[in-house]
Simulated scan of single mutants.
Amino acid sequence: MLNALEVFTTVAVGLMVGVEFSVAFVMNRIFNALPEDSGQLGRAHGGRMLGAVMPVWYIGSLVLVGIWAIADRHHHGTGLVITAGALLMLSVIMSIVLLVPINNRGKTWTPENRPADWKEQMNRWDRYHYVRVAAIIAAFALLVVALT
């Protein structure tokens, strides 16, 4: 049963890394290259769509890592799991404090109502997101090492 939890948790975090990596290094670059207002509209739609799913995914992953750390507390890899959990907690805090406020504004923007500094706000979101992606990649790597 513990092995199933470890594998499920690692896969869940790994898939989250894949989605967030794709947003950072693929989707946003595609959106930025689109003509006229298409990129801003794409970001707004992505913010609405992923903004509904990702909180559950982030918090669910953190809970799974916590359960893993408690259930396997006497294993030699528990320190790695706890460190991964701390990195996931950092990503949740970053999301709530830094990224979600920008996303909540951006997902309502249209070409008619967006603020003059909308590109600056999106660039700030991107920079914060790169740090968050680095944190969850590190968490995923630690879980993989703990699993092996």
Rank of each mutant, 00 (worst) to 15 (best):
P111E: 15
P101N: 12
I30K: 01
L143N: 05
H76L: 09
G18P: 11
G77P: 07
V145R: 07
W109C: 00
A138R: 00
P55W: 15
A4G: 05
D72V: 06
G106D: 01
S22K: 03
H45N: 11
A44T: 03
N32M: 07
G60Y: 13
A71N: 02
L41G: 01
Y130P: 00
V56M: 11
I136G: 01
R73Y: 13
V23Q: 13
L143A: 04
F31N: 02
V23P: 15
W118L: 08
V13A: 05
D117Q: 13
A134R: 08
I93H: 11
L15S: 08
F31H: 03
V97R: 15
I67K: 09
H74C: 01
K119Y: 04
Q40Y: 06
R127E: 08
A24L: 14
Y58C: 04
I70F: 07
A84H: 00
V11N: 08
R132E: 01
V53P: 07
E20G: 06
P55Q: 05
L99Y: 05
V131T: 10
E120Q: 15
F25Y: 14
Y130H: 08
L80N: 04
G42V: 09
R43Q: 04
R127M: 10
M122D: 12
V63A: 14
L143M: 08
I70A: 14
R132C: 02
E6W: 04
S61G: 14
R43K: 02
T110N: 07
I93Q: 11
V97Y: 05
A69R: 00
R48H: 12
N104F: 10
E6G: 10
Q121V: 01
A4H: 03
A138S: 07
G60F: 07
I136K: 02
G51H: 01
E20T: 11
L34M: 15
V97I: 14
W57Q: 05
I102Q: 00
L15V: 15
T83L: 10
L34G: 03
T148Q: 06
W125T: 02
E120K: 12
F31A: 15
L64H: 03
